[in-house]
């Protein structure tokens, strides 16, 4: 699952991963993604942007951890920011893909989580 409000990046991530045969669900809105997770199938990985309108990546992670059904889904943070805290929530325990990254970094990360699932 991809959660990123940047249309171009979200679509590029989706294209690259779909081309590798992954089934990808992509969301621009973290709140919508959360509902989809609660109601739909469980992904083996969530790629999470931090700076998003509405529900931020930090808030999404806090909501995810508060839900026993979702808390074990691995999350990789996709960010250009150096700060892993929004002042309220912190993400210091998470794996990070720092922008800009290339396809091989992305696919290595995704493949590792796919193998572990």
């Amino acid at each position: 699952m991809i959660i990123d409000d940047d249309d171009d990046l979200r679509e590029a991530l989706m294209d690259v991963m779909s081309a590798q045969g992954y089934e990808v669900a992509a969301f621009a809105d973290a709140r919508v993604a959360l509902t989809a997770l609660e109601e739909g199938p469980t992904p083996f990985l969530i790629l999470l942007d931090l700076m998003m309108p509405g529900m931020s990546g930090w808030e999404f992670r806090a909501a995810q951890l508060a839900n026993p059904k979702l808390l074990s889904i691995p999350v990789v943070v996709v960010t250009a920011a150096n700060m892993l805290s929004d002042g309220v929530h912190t993400l210091s325990d998470l794996e990070i893909l720092r922008k800009p990254f290339d396809v091989s970094t992305l696919l290595t990360t995704v493949a590792r989580h796919a193998a572990a699932s």
Partner: peptide
């Protein structure tokens, strides 16, 4: 960095 990432991908 966001458009750079998209460019790179």
């Amino acid at each position: 960095r966001t458009p750079l990432t998209t460019l790179s991908l």
